[in-house]
Design a protein around this nucleic acid. Structure first.
Length: 380
RNA sequence: UCCGGGGUAGCUCAAUUGGCAGACGCGUUCGGCUGUUAACCGAAAGGUUGUGGGUUCGAGUCCCACCCCCGGAG
């Protein structure tokens, strides 16, 4: 699902997002709580009506933003770069003041005011937003903390899980589902314990979160620990992998038994001038802002049926738009990237139904274009 | 033709009494971006200071000639 953090998939209209094959978008409690405020959105009849999206909405709990205020980006934190490096040396306006049992005290990045976000607050905000699926308030444990901190943090997240579910059972909308979140860092026993705790709860679905590891291999290993616990045949609840969305990660995630994903990557990369293409050697990306495309009549991606490519816009045009800072370029690439991932996921779904997941995954990983993966007979 | 202003990094512009030729932005190249504080961030490359002489220990800077650009006058 694309991110609609601040009640919009940046640059796109709801109709366009739906036409690209998406059923769900993810909005954010933290952002909408601070601005424009959940009460205002409730007065507009809820987030669906406010943003004009009549399909399902997931709302994130705000837990990740606490992490973000303290550590910047996931990559910065894993690479042990100070948060300032990500902001060009500027002081980050938002700041975590304290993570306590009751909740998180922080300073708003918008006006510097001090706020308190408790598990109950998060659920209350999400109830007011009227999302179809709420995420419990958790602490997204960083990579660079010791095992002891991770253990204590994960335990606290479990207690917050109970508080969220209790609040929701008593006050939450009856038609709103709640997903618990598995934490536990990169420690197998903690991950397993956390997965068991969430699985044992009344949570409607299971999300896997936290900093999953320093590299892809570790991310997959850690994810696998959790999904293995959740993999029983009687476990029919959907599994969501939070924040993951690079092409190879989606393929690996599906193979590990993940059902849904959300990620800023396709739209953010698009706004940064990058188009997703079936090119594993270059991380499935091409930078269309590069001068070498100045005269290129090549499409964004050969054979791509997405609206941006189907319209026939050549790379030379997209590059020109990017360099002249025209918003159309960011829209075209956001559309293309979302369409690319939409087809990728469709391929994987079809492969699961056909019993050919391994073959399809192999083809996609070796550079097959999503939507054009050759039909392969099931081998087992 | 005369008067005035000006030629410095690909572009736009700095540079104290003559004293290590620089910056911001753009551009270029490279790197980064994973539950978005992000139409963003970081790094690098890039120069015979219009040309030719001269003065000086030393010239982007002062002097002479020439070439080009802009404005004004005729």
């Amino acid at each position: 699902m694309p991110l609609a953090t601040k009640a919009t998939v940046k640059g796109l209209e709801p109709r366009e997002v739906a036409e690209l094959g998406y059923d769900m978008v993810l909005g954010n409690t933290y952002h909408l709580f601070l601005d424009p405020g959940h009460e205002l959105i409730a007065r507009f009849g809820g987030l669906h009506r406010f943003m004009g999206w009549d399909h399902p909405i997931v709302t994130d709990s705000g837990g990740f933003q606490v992490f973000s205020m303290g550590h910047g980006t996931v990559a910065d934190e894993i690479k042990a770069r100070p948060p300032a490096a990500a902001t060009g040396g500027r002081e980050r306006a938002g700041k975590v003041l304290a993570i306590e049992e009751d909740g998180v005290r922080f300073r708003s990045h918008l006006d510097g005011s001090e706020k308190l976000l408790r598990p109950e607050t998060s659920m209350e905000v999400q109830a007011a937003l009227g999302s179809d699926l709420a995420l419990v308030f958790d602490e997204c444990t960083p990579f660079h903390v010791d095992r002891d901190y991770t253990a204590r943090s994960t335990q606290r997240t479990h207690r917050w899980l109970d508080r969220c579910l209790s609040w929701h059972a008593e006050h939450g909308p009856t038609d709103q589902l709640v997903y618990g979140i598995v934490q536990g860092g990169v420690h197998e026993d903690l991950r397993v314990e956390s997965a068991q705790a969430v699985a044992a709860s009344s949570s409607d679905g299971i999300a896997i979160g936290g900093s999953l590891g320093a590299d892809k291999e570790e991310i997959y290993r850690v994810t696998g620990w959790a999904t293995a616990v959740l993999g029983g045949r009687d476990e029919l609840r959907p599994r969501h992998l939070l924040g993951i969305g690079e092409v190879d990660d989606l393929i690996a995630g599906v193979e590990l038994g993940i059902d849904t994903f959300d990620c800023a990557m396709p739209t953010r990369l698009g706004r940064h001038g990058m188009a997703l293409v079936p090119d594993p050697d270059h991380r499935w990306r091409v930078d269309l802002g590069a001068a070498r495309w100045r005269d290129s009549r090549e499409p964004i991606m050969e054979g791509c049926p997405c609206p941006a490519c189907a319209a026939g816009h050549p790379r030379g045009y997209v590059r020109y738009l990017l360099k002249s800072r025209e918003l159309t370029a960011l829209r075209l690439l956001s559309i293309h990237n979302l369409a690319f991932l939409s087809r990728l996921m469709a391929d994987l779904r079809h492969a699961i139904a056909a019993g050919t997941l391994a073959q399809t995954a192999r083809a996609l990983r070796s550079g097959a274009a999503p939507g054009e993966v050759p039909e392969v007979p099931a081998t087992s």
